[in-house]
Design a protein around this nucleic acid. Structure first.
Lengths: 106, 106
DNA sequence: TGGCGATTTGGGAATATTGCCAAATGATGG
DNA sequence: CCATCATTTGGCAATATTCCCAAATCGCCA
């Protein structure tokens, strides 16, 4: 695997890593419904606000969300709704594993 | 976030984690073209065979690939081709980040 | 059965991630 | 300017991941 190819896969892996945490998946799911500020997300999640902020930083670095200032608050929004398609795929995988049968065909 | 909801997100995160490594993304990409045995994958990747075997174990535990014995070799195959859709999404994200414009709309 | 090639497992060191606290920064209104 | 609320950053301990080597296992054939 040459360096260019490797770099391509690492860039992709960075996005997958951003999705590889339950809290961040929750955030994306909620942001798919509406834009939410950090303090509201923090309350929903129940973790320290600095923890939530760092999760948002990871999602932002991956290009998945975007922050927009509104007064002292910062509202986050989903930048790439296509990731939601992946949620559906994850559900089919989980379902097929649970049932022991084949997975989605395409 | 109640426990049931959390468990659901953690199950999904497990799948995202399986995709969160360049080597494993490479493996999935190759397996989308044809079934390949561990030794061939090892040669393509250029890592220790035990490392490749562990990557395959992670993908298998996530329900993404499946091994099939053929003599002494084990051929792996993609169990859930729907993950390939995520590859396309990752490319749009990367492209939109590079160009600084909006991402995929759906 | 014995030996060989293919694969997995165990173990451990290097590295990365997670999540809290404390402190710094930013924005707003008095 | 000062106080206050919202958010980010720094730092650190706990935990998880990665990857090599060595050893164990598995399947086949002589």
């Amino acid at each position: 695997m040459d360096n260019v190819t490797l770099a391509r896969y690492e860039a992709r892996a960075q996005i997958a890593k951003a999705l590889a945490h339950s809290t961040r998946l929750f955030i994306i799911d909620e942001l798919s419904r509406r834009d939410i500020c950090v303090c509201d997300l923090t309350e929903m999640i129940g973790a320290d606000i600095s923890t939530v902020s760092k999760h948002l930083t990871i999602l932002k670095s991956a290009g998945l969300v975007q922050g927009r200032k509104h007064g002292a608050q910062i509202f986050y929004r989903l930048r790439c709704p296509c990731v939601l398609g992946f949620f559906g795929c994850m559900e089919s995988v989980l379902k097929s594993v649970a049932e022991g049968n084949a997975c989605c065909v395409a």
